[in-house]
C-alpha cells in the first residue's frame, strides 16, 4: 500500500495564519513575512514539516503569522531553542527569526556558537538598527551618531556590530543580505538559505517606519553585491570589510560538516522529568 503523504499545492497565502500582524503599517517586516510564505510555497514544504522559532521583539512575532509549527521564545534565546529542536527533530525545516537587538545583543553569544556549530538552520535577522518594540532605543547595529533616542541623546559613540563579518569569523557556512524593499529577491535568498545544508545566516535590511523613518531612504542606497558568491573565507572577508552595509546578495557559501548529535540519548524525557520531581 502506498503510504506517501500527498500534499496539495499551496499558495504563499496558505502559509499565512489567521493572526493579523500588529506591526506598524509600512513596516519592512511585512515583506519578510511575504518572502517566508513565498519561499515555503516555492519549496512545497508541508506545513507540518516546518517550525518557526523566535525570540522577543517586533520581528520575533513572525512565527505567529505563519501557519506552521512555531515557538515564540524568550529574549535572545531563539537559536538555542531552534538548535534543540533540530537536534531532536532533524526531519523538520527549522527557520529562526528575530531582530538585531535580540540576535546580536541579548542573543549575541548564541549567534557566535550557532555559526560555528553549523546545524542545519536558517537564521533571518530583520535588522532595522533599533529596538522598536520598546519604542526606539539604539541597538548593536545602530550608527554611533544616531541621537534620536532619549537614552542616547548624543549617540552611542560606539562602532556598530557588523553581522556579516562576525558570522564569517564565527564560522557560518552561508552568509547573505536581503532587503525588505525587494521582496522577490529576498524570497530567492531565503529559498537558497533553506536549501543550504548548514547554518544559513540571512541579514535582512527591514526599515522601521516609526522609529527610524529615515530608513525609507534605504531603497535608494541598496545595491546588488558586485562579488559573485564565494566559498573562500579570505575573499569573503575582504569583500565584507569593504562593504558599505548596503550590498545585497549571497556573499559566502561553503559546504562544511553539519553538526547533529551522533549518539543515542542516554535517558528518556520521563527519566529527566523524574529528577525534577520535588
Amino acid at each position: 500500500m502506498d503510504t506517501a503523504i500527498v500534499t496539495p499545492t499551496l499558495r504563499a497565502k496558505d502559509y499565512k495564519s489567521e493572526v493579523a500582524p500588529v506591526w506598524c503599517p509600512g513596516c519592512g517586516h511585512f515583506a519578510v513575512l511575504s518572502a517566508v510564505t513565498k519561499a515555503l510555497a516555492h519549496l512545497k514544504l508541508p506545513k507540518e514539516r516546518v517550525a518557526m522559532i523566535s525570540g522577543i521583539g517586533c520581528s520575533s512575532r513572525l512565527p505567529a503569522y505563519v501557519d506552521a509549527y512555531g515557538f515564540h521564545g524568550i529574549h535572545g534565546r531563539a537559536l538555542p531553542l531552534a538548535s534543540g529542536l533540530k537536534a531532536a527533530r532533524p526531519d523538520l525545516t527549522v527557520i529562526v527569526a528575530g531582530g538585531d537587538g535580540d540576535g546580536f545583543s541579548i542573543g549575541g553569544n548564541h549567534f557566535l556558537h550557532a555559526c560555528r556549530r553549523n546545524m542545519d538552520l536558517t537564521y533571518i535577522v530583520m535588522d532595522n538598527e533599533v529596538y522598536g518594540m520598546t519604542k526606539g532605543q539604539a541597538s548593536p547595529t545602530t550608527q554611533p551618531d544616531w541621537a534620536k533616542s532619549k537614552l542616547t541623546p548624543h549617540g552611542t559613540g560606539m562602532r556598530p556590530f557588523l553581522p556579516t563579518a562576525i558570522a564569517l569569523a564565527a564560522g557560518a557556512s552561508f552568509i547573505a543580505r536581503g532587503f525588505a524593499g525587494d521582496p522577490n529577491g529576498l524570497t530567492k535568498l531565503l529559498v537558497e538559505a533553506i536549501e543550504h545544508p548548514g547554518f544559513a545566516f540571512l541579514q535582512v535590511l527591514s526599515p522601521c517606519q516609526t522609529f527610524r523613518p529615515e530608513q525609507k531612504e534605504w531603497k535608494h542606497l541598496v545595491h546588488p553585491s558586485d562579488m559573485a558568491p564565494t566559498d573562500d573565507p579570505v575573499e569573503a572577508a575582504r569583500f565584507i570589510q569593504a562593504d558599505d552595509g548596503m550590498a545585497l546578495g549571497l556573499f559566502y557559501v561553503r559546504r562544511l560538516p553539519v553538526w547533529q548529535p551522533q549518539h543515542q540519548p542516554t535517558a528518556t524525557p520521563a527519566d529527566l522529568e523524574r529528577e525534577f520531581v520535588l
Binding site: A12, G26, K38, G181, D182, N184, G185, T187, K188
Partner: peptide
C-alpha cells in the same frame, strides 16, 4: 517569485509605490 517579468522589485500594484503608509 523572482522570475516574474516585472520591472519593479515586485508586482506592479504592490511593489512600485513610493507612498508613505502610516
Amino acid at each position: 517569485p523572482w522570475d516574474f517579468k516585472w520591472a519593479c522589485p515586485g508586482s506592479p500594484e504592490v511593489d512600485c509605490d513610493d507612498f508613505d503608509v502610516s
